[in-house]
Nucleic acid binder design. Structure first.
Lengths: 141, 141
DNA sequence: TATTGTTATACTCTATAACTATA
DNA sequence: TATAGTTATAGAGTATAACAATA
């Protein structure tokens, strides 16, 4: 009856994860859109990237990434520079202000959740600690 | 050092949950928008509701819910009726077609996740089983 | 008057199509 | 010619403001 168990667990897990992600989304207080924040995070993770690479990473079309980068650049959160050898390409990288905003945004989000976690028992915290990497593996599988 | 542990766990859990929810969102193959699906699910959970109650439940403004219900009603997924005693209010309820679509949508979403769960060990499945209700409690806290 | 829902209008985010500049 | 990015334009989803109907 393994498959029955998995089907039921899948249903329960999906609902729980979606509810928690929705709640976390509501608790954010950033002035940037999800894609703008994600773009900053991707730049932090990968260092400098071309506009096309960023569009592929965020799964948006190039014109959309053009707008995202234009906004972030105007806000001083990323810098745009010409590619050293290919004049067609545009290189984007995180500015110190962008990195700082990302860190503060991240801390704000974590703050709400950390407060909730403080109300859990040690056993529940242990369960969550073990579950987090498993959820991560599921997301990447 | 309890708070340090919780802060780190909060960060890890938030990332894992967001990644998995994003992945699950990508795996959906519904023709309805997230809000439209959520509205059907809320109606299934609560039975008949007024348009104002639905707007509050989904955290959208009344005009937005007017549009959602108009679309779902045109599609035959919900029925609209007058309130028995208050002529201003509009009562919405799920039709059999709406319930069927919801069930099929849910099964489609569960299918992908169940397939991934099948690759986990018994111990990992047990961890996830215990974690799901805790995530739910976090979402509702 | 206050409340429920609708209509009118605008904004944000993203897409496709057409275009410019460089390879 | 092919490719990287931009500009022009359109569509989906949601919001606020103004309005109509009912309490």
């Amino acid at each position: 009856m393994e498959s029955v168990t998995e089907a039921r667990l899948a249903s329960a897990l999906r609902l729980s994860v979606m509810r928690l992600s929705r709640r976390m989304r509501q608790e954010r207080s950033s002035s940037l859109s999800p894609t703008q924040i994600a773009t900053l995070a991707t730049l932090e993770r990968h260092g400098t990237m071309t506009l096309g690479e960023l569009a592929a990473a965020e799964r948006v079309q190039p014109p959309s990434m053009t707008r995202v980068i234009a906004f972030l650049s105007d806000a001083g959160l990323v810098s745009r520079s010409a590619h050293p050898t290919d004049g067609r390409q545009v290189i984007a990288s995180l500015t110190p202000a962008g990195a700082a905003l990302l860190a503060s945004d991240r801390a704000q989000r974590d703050e709400w959740l950390a407060g909730r976690l403080a109300a859990l028992s040690a056993e529940e915290l242990a369960t969550i600690s073990h579950a987090a990497p498993i959820l991560d593996a599921l997301a990447n599988s």
